[in-house]
Design a protein around this nucleic acid. Structure first.
Lengths: 345, 345
DNA sequence: GCCGACCTTGCATGCGAATGCAAACTGCGC
DNA sequence: GCGCAGTTTGCATTCGCATGCAAGGTCGGC
């Protein structure tokens, strides 16, 4: 080690100089730092990982970044992890479900934790990682049964609230645009929505599948809106699909929103706030969700024996202009209109 | 090594079994693979990197993923790199320009290459990395002078074509919404736009700065549209800002697009294709740009002595509905209308 | 049956840093 | 002046894998 020689110390001292909290004299440390600076030396994270057997890398799986929600999540996650001294290894799984060769690669990196932020990943995969001994966290999805922690929004409550909101708006014939069939988020939102409607004597909504994708959602919207018994209101499984439905409704069917059709989304992403969409949407607040996720992975790394946890981050039904407004029940909160019904949900 | 013992071979043999092209008998390899499978063993990429001194990790810096262009780039890049056996370490630089502590971290990982896909990064930083001996590639930006390779779209030509297109559309009083002041992309687009107009006897366009951000662009649009000599057409430095301008023009000023105001963007991202915006935009084709970038970093890694290269990926002015259509000059190309003027640019 | 060419294999070493242990040093109280 | 506690330091080993080198094995040609 040249730095050691230049500073006139041993390699151990150099190592300690760059290890916070190590036993080293202040004067020695600064001598090493000077030497390092003049030689352009910086500690090798790879070698360090090898000896400490902690990589300080978190793998994050994210597919379909077209949906605005995920880029925002990714950016926040990256910052959150960096703030805690972790790096983010991005990993984009292919559509093909099982046995990703790419996951193999990621696992080979001995990542300290894995965040699955993609509804399309099979949960068998999560199980497999957990078996490999690395903490796995599901982001914006869950699996019941298996022992994998998760951070999600209030999918069930959101679905119920939206049903109630649309009902209060005077709608009776509703539609639901599902995301990916076997994703927990879509299932829970649907359960909440259908559940409330059934309990309150509403007819069963029409249902189509949009796979959480723009094109598929647009196609589903065409099917839904071409019907003679076209729904008066559609709850779209997320904002991304809701924008697709809005586009089709307006530009292909000449419908006015919300006069001819009410639309509600989920996520409350940036485009929902654009006046063109002005989307009423149940929020999945970005920062709280990401903060929870980052904190949770870190905890799981510190204490691998900890109990599985399922954190649910509270959201609000943010009321904007894409759905007919109920005569009462909307209150202003932090500059936003939110739906706060008096009656219990 | 347990695997070696179980397979009855030496550790070297295990290593060779997992090294493509290594000298090992087929029978031995499969015996090792069996043993590995039953023990759940997989090679440690960290240790491998330590000995080979090649990490097979590419650092990618991306900030402000709100702009749709970058998530799409990121996803494509991730897939492209994975296909070549590289991992993508994501790195979100802070707004503060110089001396990122995070970059230190990334450099500590001895990444094989660095792709800067963020207009906000200082180029001093790129220089510093190159000095550290790792190949640096600028994506969607350049620096003249310094020896850093880059992949960009046709910023200059795009700017000129847009000027010509708007002129052909009968506009005379134009506006330009700049991105980040000292970014090469914004500068080149502006140069092209202003250049053509000046050469052809048009008045100098009004100019505002949108910093490539939605909010800033909206604010700039308000300033621009509130003027009595409001421009008839605005060239926005990218699609992201163009959507902001469209929102403000329509919903705050009651302008109809393109009747009252023509709008042209840059990038041709997904939202540009949404009917609500139907944005005429100069394309920066995603796949070709990303493919070029991936190929170029890989080359630079293989051959660090190679010459600096500046790849410019060809784009088209995709004509949609946000700007008044010139009476002639638009031709259909692969299902899209593009601007192909007869006269030289 | 012998020799050389070629294919496989194991041995030993190195990559760059972390760390337990013991040695060296410092300062202090008596 | 001595002993002891506390602080620094260096030594030697370790992490898991790659790889040059030499040894062992196989096979075909003569």
């Amino acid at each position: 080690m040249d730095v050691a020689r230049l500073a006139g110390v041993s390699q151990s001292a150099v190592s300690r100089a760059f290890t916070p909290g190590a036993s080293i004299a202040a004067e020695t440390r600064s001598r090493v730092e000077d030497a390092a600076r003049s030689l352009g030396y910086r500690p090798n994270a790879i070698a360090r990982s090898l000896t400490t057997s902690r990589s300080r890398i978190i793998g994050v799986a994210a597919a379909y970044l077209q949906n605005h929600f995920y880029p925002e999540v990714l950016e926040a996650m990256s910052r959150g992890l960096q703030a805690r001294g972790y790096q983010l290894l991005l990993f984009t799984p292919d559509a093909g479900r099982h046995a990703d060769p790419q996951l193999e690669q990621v696992l080979a990196w001995r990542i300290d934790g894995l965040i699955l932020a993609s509804s399309t990943l099979s949960s068998a995969l999560a199980e497999q990682c957990r078996a490999a001994g690395i903490p796995v966290l599901l982001f914006n999805r869950t699996t019941r049964g298996t022992n994998v922690s998760s951070v999600t929004g209030e999918n069930l409550r959101g679905g119920r609230l939206i049903a109630q909101f649309l009902a209060a708006g005077g709608h009776r014939r509703m539609g639901f645009l599902a995301g990916i069939e076997n994703s927990s988020t879509s299932r829970d939102r649907e359960r909440g929505f259908f559940g409330w409607l059934a309990e309150n004597g509403f007819p069963k909504p029409l249902r189509e599948v949009g796979l959480y994708r723009f094109d598929a959602a647009a196609a589903a919207a065409r099917r839904l809106l071409a019907r003679t018994d076209r729904p008066e209101a559609i709850f779209c499984g997320n904002d991304h699909m809701a924008t697709a439905v809005a586009e089709v409704a307006r530009h292909e069917f000449g419908l006015r929103i919300p006069r001819d059709l009410s639309l509600v989304g989920f996520d409350d992403t940036a485009p929902a706030r654009w006046p063109s969409f002005s989307l009423t949407s149940f929020s999945q607040p970005l920062k709280p969700m990401v903060d929870a996720a980052v904190a949770l992975v870190c905890e799981m790394i510190e204490n691998p024996e900890a109990e599985t946890r399922h954190e649910v981050v509270r959201g609000e039904l943010v009321v904007r202009g894409s759905a007919r407004m109920p005569p009462e029940g909307c209150v202003s909160l932090e500059g936003q209109l939110v739906w706060r019904p008096v009656e219990p949900e």
